[in-house]
């Protein structure tokens, strides 16, 4: 089988990077921040206890799959999607699509992606990448986290696509089948911002949005009681850095990428207030990055006493105040 000519590009995030590169391949010139912003990707959620997580954790983006769904709804793009109960059917369908020259996005458990360095691997069922060819029993993969296309053997791809558990991929595949010729981005941008503000300010759930950041600040001081020992606590505290910076966010828990979206949106909408707000969010993001560095430092030094955990809590609480003010102004700026 051959490799489909495909312009591989790195992206900040797997889902927005995958959707962006597929849209670019289909002829739509759109940036990853624009896809992320229109899809209302920015978010916050804190999970103190969850049946699928071994330790309290947080998320900084909307629900996996929503970037594609919101892009479909707001830009009028059509995607063909498939899920499978049977593994053989799922692998055969992928091979068929590749034979037709169609690059296909796959949802997988990141843990089974052999090309990922050992220290980055985790069981996360919502990783997205594009399969762009097959040579022998190896698949060629355009994964936006990597500088070059990678090879992945058939067994690993199969395990990744059909892993069970929370948000099981069920062999999920998608690719765009229709992209409107002329897209006016103005309405989708406004809709995307409006929904993001709603998610951050108004969702009546105590662990989501600004409430979620406040809850994170309040409960992070309780983390020591969940840890097996000091090294476990150190590992989990240092994961704050990974979740905010390394796990495909574009830096500062997506705040830098969303600031880039707002700057691009300000030009399209000729709205100077959005430009000011993009700079403000960049500064808020710098504060999140300070939290990342602080967490890495106290984790490495095993300096995890009550005073340091309280200091971490205060830094997070400060972000909540600033983001509440920011999203209120953002909401007002598009009225």
């Amino acid at each position: 089988m051959t490799t489909i000519p495909y312009n591989h590009k790195m992206g900040a995030h797997c889902e927005s990077g995958t959707v962006t590169s597929l849209l670019n391949h289909a002829g739509l010139a759109i940036s990853e921040p624009m896809v992320f912003g229109i899809a209302s990707g920015i978010f916050f959620g804190y999970f103190h206890k969850h049946k699928s997580f071994t330790f309290p954790t947080f998320i900084v983006r909307n629900r996996p799959g929503d970037i594609r769904k919101n892009i479909k709804k707001r830009l009028g793009v059509k995607f063909q999607t498939y899920s499978f109960r049977n593994e053989e059917d799922g692998m055969n369908k992928l091979d068929d699509l590749l034979r037709q020259g169609i690059p296909v996005a796959c949802q997988v458990d990141f843990f089974y992606m052999d090309y990922v360095p050992s220290w980055e691997r985790a069981h996360v069922n919502v990783h997205f990448m594009v399969v762009i060819g097959k040579e022998g029993s190896d698949y060629l993969v355009s994964d936006s986290y990597f500088p070059r296309p990678e090879r992945l053997n058939e067994q690993s791809l199969r395990r990744g696509r059909f892993a069970g558990g929370n948000m099981s991929p069920e062999g999920f595949l998608f690719y765009p089948t229709f992209v409107p010729a002329d897209i006016d981005l103005r309405k989708p941008i406004l809709k995307g911002i409006d929904k993001a503000c709603f998610n951050m300010l108004k969702l009546p759930v105590p662990f989501i949005g600004i409430n979620g950041i406040r809850l994170f600040a309040k409960r992070v001081v309780e983390w020591p009681k969940f840890a097996r020992d000091t090294e476990h606590l150190s590992h989990e505290v240092m994961k704050i850095n990974i979740l905010l910076e390394d796990q495909g966010t574009g830096g500062a828990g997506f705040r830098f990428m969303y600031a880039t979206f707002l700057q691009q949106a300000s030009e399209i909408l000729a709205n100077s207030e959005l430009k000011n707000l993009s700079s403000e969010l960049m500064t808020i993001g710098d504060g999140w990055r300070e939290i990342s560095l602080f967490a890495a430092r106290i984790g490495k030094n095993r300096d995890l006493g009550a005073d340091k955990m309280k200091e971490l809590s205060n830094l997070i609480a400060e972000r909540a105040e600033l983001e509440e003010d920011f999203f209120k102004k953002l909401k007002k700026s598009i009225k």
Binding site: G11, G250, A259, M282
Partner: peptide, 16 residues
């Protein structure tokens, strides 16, 4: 371990 970070460029534009 390479990654994309969004930053402020010298001309004031934000980008990857």
């Amino acid at each position: 371990q390479q990654m994309i970070l969004y930053v402020e460029k010298e001309d004031g534009q934000f980008g990857p």
